[in-house]
Design a protein around this nucleic acid. Structure first.
Lengths: 184, 184
DNA sequence: CTCAGATGATACAAGAATGTCTCATCGGGC
DNA sequence: GCCCGATGAGACATTCTTGTATCATCTGAG
């Protein structure tokens, strides 16, 4: 089993059990604790790599949605499309990297924290552009919109985990709720 | 320092640092570890009591909003008022009991898990009634609406914690976003 | 003042998790 | 068949946390 697979196995375990010990993670992955430690020098190292994977996935979501160019263009239609793509990509993230959403250990690593802030600001700038273009309402801070999306991702993660919503409905529900809320 | 104050101090510490040890909790509260243990036999006991406090607060929110009677009445105006009150109460909860929102240890205690399910269903029934009365959209599962509110509370908690939004704006932002989303 | 109760400081044992190490075993490539 | 690398099993020391116990000190009520 390669380091990549092992990391994903660890991710699955930690998604279900965020405080799982190295023993449990190894057992769930079907390898010995020794092998786990051969691939990840320490628990901190493992968490850090998972954090990086999560940030990579987030960055890829922003890239795929092309938020920078779309935001810079100011074109409402283009921004609308980017917003849709972003929702789709973020749903995938929430499903895959769920536990990193509410993980607090990450902040300890300066590089990860810095990258997290950078992506957060990139996303926020996009929302600000969407506000200016008239796509999103202007009577809220762009920062709050970012926290809205984040929070709804957490809610979606839990809803998926508890089986309250089906995966195939996830994207529509998320996008609809972000944009229009739950009012009739 | 009474047990009540101590619990609240512990709550503050755990809000900032969800995995804080008993030593850290005691130090943050300004008491010795011995005193902390005199008030709470074990860490599990402390967490359980905080969980109970959180659930009490949640139940009180539902009670204050009078969701059962409002939902049962089917009166849209009454439901609308209840929804507003519920938002106000939940904002208070998110601020005060933030860390319990994403705490996983609680599930271990059967009584707490059961009560949590009960309140969740109470809230969901209210949303279902709100859907039937025409206040909330019907093209979403009531369960998803509950997760929406939950997720936005998590987002709000973090936004408040990071200083991204002011406490005085919290209620309006939450209610507005829940009901109408962020679209212009 | 006196004393009971609460508190702080400290020590102690038990358990869990971590990180390192060694050794035996297995399996594929040569 | 042989060997090298990866793996599993297990031992080990270390550290952290927890829960308990003991003792000195402080404080407020009587």
């Amino acid at each position: 089993m390669g380091a990549e697979e092992l990391a994903k196995a660890a991710l699955r375990t930690l998604n279900a059990e965020p405080t799982a010990s190295m023993s449990r993670i190894a057992a769930s992955a079907g390898v010995s604790r020794a092998t786990l430690h051969r691939n990840f020098a320490s628990r901190e190292d493992l968490i850090r790599q998972l954090g990086r994977m999560s940030l990579d996935s987030w960055r890829q979501a922003l890239d795929t949605a092309d938020v920078d160019a779309a935001g810079g263009s100011g074109d409402p239609e283009r921004i609308r499309v980017a917003m849709n793509v972003l929702c789709r990509e973020l749903v995938r993230d929430a499903d895959e990297y769920g536990f990193t959403l509410t993980l607090t250990e990450h902040v300890q690593d300066a590089a990860i924290a810095a990258e997290s802030v950078r992506l957060h600001e990139r996303e926020m700038a996009f929302y600000a552009a969407a506000q200016e273009s008239g796509l999103l309402r202007r009577d809220m801070p762009a920062a709050w919109i970012a926290y809205t999306v984040f929070g709804l991702l957490v809610g979606l993660r839990d809803a998926l985990r508890h089986g309250a919503v089906a995966v195939r409905d996830a994207e529509r529900l998320l996008r609809d709720t972000i944009l229009h809320g739950v009012s009739a």
